[in-house]
Design a protein around this nucleic acid. Structure first.
Lengths: 149, 149
DNA sequence: AATAAAGCCTAGTTAATAGCTTGGAATTCT
DNA sequence: AGAATTCCAAGCTATTAACTAGGCTTTATT
């Protein structure tokens, strides 16, 4: 019941982009350095986010990435679902997917999994990157350097 | 972000015991057959539950397992934590465990993980095996045979 | 007392997956 | 032209999940 590094690194990277929203594109090299993540690995993660339309890339020298939308239009759930897949504790309660298990209608444990799924989704869908930026500013105030992660 | 078969099979097995609470001990062989789980594998799972004090065993012929407490005294969370470990999406928010990450005080993503952790725990700690038994009876009513899982 | 039915215990095994690394091509600013 | 970047595909390695195998111990039944 753990998240993978994809979800963790990816959300951190998106927060990094959110903190730099409105400025020049951010090179992945810089994100990787600030956050202590392997750059080529992060490259793979952000490729998924780009294909999902959450970030835009600018190629070539002085290029980098920017959020495709303002931080208040992107939720943690948007990011996590791209990186982790459907946020369901078991396959039989993945949203918008037909249930293959023939016992589903009589299954009591399935009801538990649905409740867990819903509670997770309620959390991640109610928090935007802007909320995280605000929290970042509240916690780290006028400090001279950036604590990200 | 998926549960393992330990959590899934284990909760199903505990529901099986709860449905038989107050009667003779239930042999693992029967649980395994009803639920379609490999018996020796289930044996390992229930060993953990026994060591955690959630079930009692009766050895020898006609032996088996019984819940150590009435079904309304055992929560889904009790069971899941034994089988899956702490229900935290990342290690840095495991309850009652010192945080090793030195950035924790300045970490914004960590707040997200805490909220996810809390929402999961709120769900599983508020549902008892008795709740599941009641739901089972509501769904399956007077049917002739048992749909478990 | 013998037998069979159960739980108990430890150690394999196997396939999949996570978490990267490697290498190079394409693009664009300076 | 050259450097800085994104883009793409493949390969690698250690860990883990999900079992299986085999044998010992306990106890009700006959």
């Amino acid at each position: 019941m753990k998240l993978s590094t994809k979800g963790r690194y990816g959300l951190t990277a998106m927060l990094d982009l959110a903190l730099n929203y409105g400025e020049e594109p951010v090179a992945l090299k810089n994100v990787a350095e600030r956050q202590g993540i392997s750059e080529p690995y992060l490259e793979q993660l952000i490729a998924g986010l780009r294909k999902a339309g959450l970030v835009k890339s600018v190629r070539g020298a002085q290029g980098g990435y920017i959020l495709a939308y303002p931080p208040d239009k992107i939720t943690v759930g948007d990011v996590m679902r791209v990186l982790e897949g459907p946020l369901a504790p078991v396959d039989c309660v993945i949203e918008n997917e037909p249930v293959s298990c023939e016992k589903a209608d009589h299954c009591v444990t399935r009801i538990i999994w649905e409740k867990i799924r819903d509670s997770i989704n309620q959390v991640v869908d109610s928090i935007t990157l802007q909320d995280m930026v605000d929290e970042y500013n509240r916690i780290n105030g006028q400090k001279g350097y950036m604590y990200y992660i």
